[in-house]
Deep mutational scan, measured.
Amino acid sequence: GGHPVTTQMVETVQNLAPNLHPEQIRYSLENTGSVEETVERYLRGDEFSFPP
């Protein structure tokens, strides 16, 4: 991942996926670069990993 992630982006995802840890959200956003894509992954039931 190398996309810039803002606190705003993390908070937006958190509102839609409250049971995800912020670190999981941030890591996913760094890989996708997209709030929409991260939320899609969540709704699909994809696994969210923590940063290594």
Rank of each mutant, 00 (worst) to 15 (best):
V13R: 00
T7P: 14
D46H: 09
L16A: 09
R44I: 05
V10I: 15
L43K: 10
D46Y: 11
S49P: 15
T32G: 07
N19Y: 09
M9S: 04
A17R: 02
N19E: 14
E37S: 08
E30N: 06
E37V: 12
I25P: 04
M9P: 01
E30D: 05
L20P: 00
G1K: 12
S34H: 03
E47D: 13
G1A: 13
G2Y: 14
P52V: 08
N15V: 14
E23R: 08
T32R: 00
R44K: 09
S28A: 11
N31A: 14
A17M: 08
D46V: 08
P52L: 09
R44E: 05
F48Q: 01
I25R: 00
L16P: 00
L29F: 00
V5H: 03
T12Y: 15
E23P: 03
E47W: 12
P18W: 05
T32I: 03
L20V: 03
V35R: 00
E40Y: 12
V5N: 03
T7M: 14
H3E: 10
T38K: 00
G33M: 07
Q24I: 03
H21L: 09
E37L: 13
P22F: 09
N31E: 15
G2L: 14
Y42G: 02
Y42S: 02
L29T: 03
V10Q: 06
I25L: 01
V10S: 02
E37F: 05
L20D: 00
G1I: 12
S28Y: 06
R26L: 08
E40R: 15
E47K: 10
P52N: 09
L43Q: 09
P18G: 06
E37D: 10
E36V: 11
V13E: 00
L16F: 12
N19R: 11
H3V: 10
R26K: 11
E30K: 06
P52K: 08
P22N: 05
T38N: 00
T6A: 04
L20K: 00
R41Y: 05
P4E: 14
V5P: 06
Y27E: 08
E30S: 11
S28V: 04
F50H: 04
H21Y: 07
G45V: 00
F48A: 02
L43H: 08
R41G: 06
P22H: 09
F48H: 02
Y42H: 04
E37Q: 10
Y27K: 10
T7R: 14
N19V: 06
N15E: 13
N31S: 14
E23T: 10
V39Y: 12
I25H: 01
T7N: 13
S34T: 06
P51V: 04
P18M: 06
G1W: 12
E36P: 06
P4S: 12
T6E: 04
V13Q: 00
Q8S: 13
V13T: 04
E30H: 07
Q8W: 11
Q8G: 10
G1M: 13
I25A: 01
M9K: 01
M9V: 02
R41I: 08
E36S: 11
F50D: 04
G33S: 05
P4A: 14
V10K: 02
R44F: 05
V35C: 04
V35F: 04
V39L: 14
A17Y: 09
P18A: 07
S49R: 12
G2P: 15
G1H: 13
I25D: 02
T12W: 15
P51G: 08
T12M: 15
Q24T: 01
V13S: 00
G45A: 03
G2A: 14
V39Q: 03
T12K: 13
T6K: 04
Y27C: 09
P51H: 04
G45S: 02
G1P: 13
T6L: 06
D46P: 00
R26D: 04
M9Y: 02
T7C: 15
H21A: 10
D46R: 02
E11C: 13
P22S: 09
F50M: 07
G45H: 04
G33Q: 07
V10F: 08
E36Q: 13
P51I: 04
P4V: 15
E47R: 08
R26N: 04
L20I: 03
G1V: 13
F50W: 15
Y27T: 08
P4M: 14
F48S: 02
T32N: 06
R41W: 03
L16G: 03
F50S: 04
E37I: 13
V39G: 01
Y27W: 14
G2M: 13
G33F: 06
E23C: 15
E40K: 15
V35E: 03
V13L: 04
S49I: 14
E47L: 11
Q14E: 04
Y42A: 07
V13M: 04
P51E: 04
H3F: 15
A17H: 03
T6Y: 06
T7F: 10
P22Y: 11
Q8K: 13
P52C: 09
S34D: 07
T38Q: 00
T6I: 06
V39E: 03
L43E: 07
A17Q: 02
L16W: 10
I25V: 06
G2V: 14
L43S: 05
E30W: 10
Q24N: 01
V5T: 06
Q14H: 11
N15Y: 11
E36I: 11
F48M: 09
E40I: 13
L16S: 07
M9Q: 08
N15D: 09
Y27G: 07
Q8D: 12
E47S: 12
G2F: 14
E11H: 11
V10W: 05
G2C: 15
L29W: 01
E11M: 13
N31G: 10
E11P: 01
T6W: 07
H21W: 06
R44V: 05
